[in-house]
Design a protein around this nucleic acid. Sequence first.
DNA 1: AACTCGACCAACCGCGATAAT
DNA 2: GATTATCGCGGTTGGTCGAGT
Length: 225
Amino acid sequence: MRKPCCDKLDTNKGAWSKQEDHKLIDYIRKHGEGCWRTLPQAAGLLRCGKSCRLRWINYLRPDLKRGNFAEDEEDLIIKLHALLGNRWSLIAGRLPGRTDNEVKNYWNSHLRRKLLNMGIDPNNHRLNQFHLQHSASTNSSSVFKQEPAADVKLENVVNNNDNNDDEQAASDGESVLDQNVQQGFLPDLNLDLTITFPSSSSSIINVDQEKQEINNTESTILRLF
DNA sequence: AACTCGACCAACCGCGATAAT
DNA sequence: GATTATCGCGGTTGGTCGAGT
């Protein structure tokens, strides 16, 4: 039905060259973002608009924070993933300077394995049977040991629907929110979504504001059902 | 030195949502 | 209302690099 967006034979694919990057940066500096369809021709690039948009958003944007994820960023990603599932753009939206692609890659390459090593199913954020029996004395994860109130809440939410019927859905990247909404009740959300920035001494995001914003996000999601 | 293997991540692809016609 | 164009998202792929043998 719909034509592929990049079917032109004269468009480049693969890794971007320095010259291409400079052309794209220069063009967006002068004209701003938007109208990705016409941007490549206007900027003198042999790329499709989609490719330009991706390159800009994921790599060239000046406000991107490159480098390793801080521990508080990891914790926030894990908590938000438990709440939202694989909604990477929503998760990335709560991490200043991070892109959905970056968060997704980091989740798949680091955090999934980290949770698995801790005996937690990364798809549904539940402790497996072994850890349910032994975690009290051995669990060393910062996510589940710091700020007990928030963590206990999170685990309570996770365990609210602890039966076998939803096992398949839960192991398919579906969020706690998804599952609870489907079953007709809402989780008691009390996530402490605090993040600090190493480069700034006064950069702790207001917790109440964060909670309000995450509630707004939840409302948006709930309206979709 | 040469090879294999796994981890990482930039980029691509396909699809759904939405706007425009 | 139907069709087309565009944007944005999530899943996947493939190239690169470092560690291990």
